[in-house]
């Protein structure tokens, strides 16, 4: 395991012996990983998933400013994985830490952590309709740790870098490409430790998909944020140095 983020499959016994803190699992104790997962186990309640879907990950690390493409078949649990990392679903067991902060610790305010440390890029962007491009960034900044005095400059600077020439236009008036850029800017505006991108190219043609991924990678690197892209698009595989198969991460549950 190294601090560039390598999938590490530990035995259950090793995980249980380890103290409940990800830094002790990481060899690079001085710089906590942007994302560190240990002995993660999650099942949907039977009423939500009739097939008894079960996700289990022994260990996963992603260092700050690194990137990883997680691929897998549709319905394989990629989105579930991202929702767990975002703290939107609660695991049955195990831990997820964002920059060393345990996401599911009783003392952790998950909403604050999500606003301050995580950025999101969605397939359909999920920009706030009725708000301008700049306002979409400002809304994200409302929930961040960045001082209010810096909000305008920060959002204007990012929008400019991403080539948004009409920051005050309502997002629904922008082209799809521009909306994609606003979504990328929003994911980075709070200086997150980790950007989660769920099928960011699924609604784009190959050329725009290539541009979008290039922008995402470029700006995550520039902002020092780790990038975790989840996709079933095989054309993205050659673009990433680190590619993980979800199936390799998971232990097949008894029900599968």
């Amino acid at each position: 395991m190294n601090n560039e983020g390598i999938l590490s499959v530990c035995t259950c016994a090793e995980v249980r012996k380890a103290p409940y803190h990800v830094r002790l699992m990481s060899p690079a104790a001085s710089a906590p990983s942007a994302l560190s997962i240990r002995a993660l186990s999650f099942s949907y309640p039977a009423r939500e998933r009739a097939n008894g879907f079960h996700l289990s990950i022994e260990a996963f690390d992603l260092a700050r400013a690194s990137e990883c493409l997680l691929v897998g078949r549709s319905g394989g649990g990629k989105s579930t994985f991202l929702q767990l990392v975002a703290g939107l679903l609660e695991p049955s067991h195990g831990s997820i830490a964002i920059e060393g902060v345990e996401l599911f610790a009783p003392t952790t305010n998950r909403d604050l952590l999500r606003g301050a440390k995580l950025g999101f890029v969605f397939q359909t962007f999920n920009l706030l309709q009725g708000f301008s491009a700049a306002e979409n960034l400002l809304v994200a900044l409302m929930f961040s740790a960045i001082p209010k005095a810096d909000w305008q400059a920060r959002s204007a600077s990012l929008l400019e870098k991403l080539g948004i020439d009409a920051p005050n236009a309502r997002v629904e008036e922008l082209s799809v490409g521009q909306q994609q850029r606003v979504a990328i800017a929003r994911s980075l505006v709070c200086r997150p430790a980790l950007v989660l991108a769920d099928e960011p190219t699924a609604s784009l043609d190959p050329e725009n998909a290539r541009i979008a991924i290039a922008l995402l990678r470029e700006h995550c690197a520039a902002e020092g944020a780790a990038l975790l892209v989840v996709s079933h698009d095989p054309s993205l595989v050659p673009l990433f140095a680190r590619v993980e198969q979800l199936a390799d991460l998971t232990r097949e549950g008894a029900t599968r």
Partner: peptide, 12 residues
Amino acid sequence: RQIAVLRVLGAS
């Protein structure tokens, strides 16, 4: 969906 986006951005 808007509420979900606000939540994902950090709104409690």
